[in-house]
Amino acid sequence: MSRKKNSQTNVEKQRRNEVVKRFDDYFGAGKLEDWQRLCIKIGLDADGCDLSSITKCRKALKSVYINIYDLVEAINKGEEVPRFASLDQLVRYTLGTRRIYPKAQAKKYGPVRALMRNVFRDE
């Protein structure tokens, strides 16, 4: 592997680790308050979703298509979280920008897991 390729891989790995850490620091591991904070940050409360339980939060998140890298950046900048109208739009964007949250880092039942989408699906 060339030195340039190695350097790019290290930068991507470092960026990925930073996104994982920031998401976990901000949204926690899975208490109801963590789920509600995520749903509110994405704007699901404004959409009229019932966020009174983890199950209801998880269900509400299934209808939202966001890139987790964009979510973390929006939080850091105090901006609105960009949402995609469809899974296809999210997949094209995510693959095109290579802003792919590492599946191995997703907590089994935590808030980040509810946002995960299969971007490597068969066309």
Rank of each mutant, 00 (worst) to 15 (best):
1 M>K: 08
2 S>Y: 13
3 R>Y: 12
4 K>Y: 14
4 K>V: 15
5 K>P: 02
5 K>G: 01
7 S>D: 09
7 S>Q: 10
8 Q>E: 15
8 Q>L: 14
9 T>E: 14
10 N>R: 15
10 N>H: 10
10 N>W: 10
11 V>Y: 13
11 V>I: 15
14 Q>M: 10
16 R>C: 04
18 E>N: 05
18 E>L: 07
19 V>I: 15
20 V>Q: 06
21 K>V: 13
22 R>M: 11
22 R>G: 00
25 D>A: 04
25 D>M: 03
25 D>L: 06
27 F>C: 08
27 F>S: 13
28 G>Y: 03
28 G>D: 02
29 A>K: 11
29 A>R: 13
31 K>Y: 06
32 L>D: 01
32 L>Q: 12
33 E>K: 10
33 E>P: 02
34 D>C: 03
36 Q>F: 13
36 Q>P: 07
37 R>N: 11
39 C>E: 00
40 I>E: 08
42 I>C: 02
43 G>P: 15
43 G>Y: 04
45 D>I: 05
47 D>H: 12
47 D>C: 09
49 C>A: 12
50 D>S: 11
52 S>T: 15
53 S>V: 13
53 S>W: 12
54 I>C: 07
55 T>M: 13
56 K>N: 02
57 C>I: 12
57 C>N: 02
57 C>V: 11
58 R>H: 10
59 K>S: 12
60 A>V: 12
60 A>W: 11
62 K>C: 09
64 V>M: 07
64 V>Y: 04
65 Y>P: 01
67 N>Q: 01
68 I>F: 08
68 I>P: 05
68 I>T: 13
69 Y>M: 04
70 D>S: 08
70 D>V: 09
70 D>F: 03
71 L>T: 04
71 L>C: 05
72 V>C: 01
74 A>D: 00
75 I>K: 00
79 E>A: 03
79 E>M: 03
79 E>S: 04
80 E>R: 12
80 E>T: 11
81 V>R: 01
83 R>T: 15
83 R>K: 14
84 F>V: 07
84 F>L: 02
84 F>M: 10
87 L>Y: 08
89 Q>A: 15
90 L>A: 01
91 V>D: 03
92 R>P: 01
95 L>P: 06
96 G>F: 00
96 G>C: 02
96 G>V: 05
100 I>R: 02
100 I>M: 08
101 Y>G: 05
101 Y>K: 03
102 P>Y: 05
102 P>K: 09
104 A>C: 10
105 Q>W: 05
106 A>T: 11
107 K>S: 15
107 K>A: 13
112 V>C: 12
115 L>W: 07
116 M>S: 04
116 M>Y: 07
116 M>L: 15
119 V>I: 15
120 F>V: 11
120 F>H: 15
120 F>I: 07
122 D>V: 14
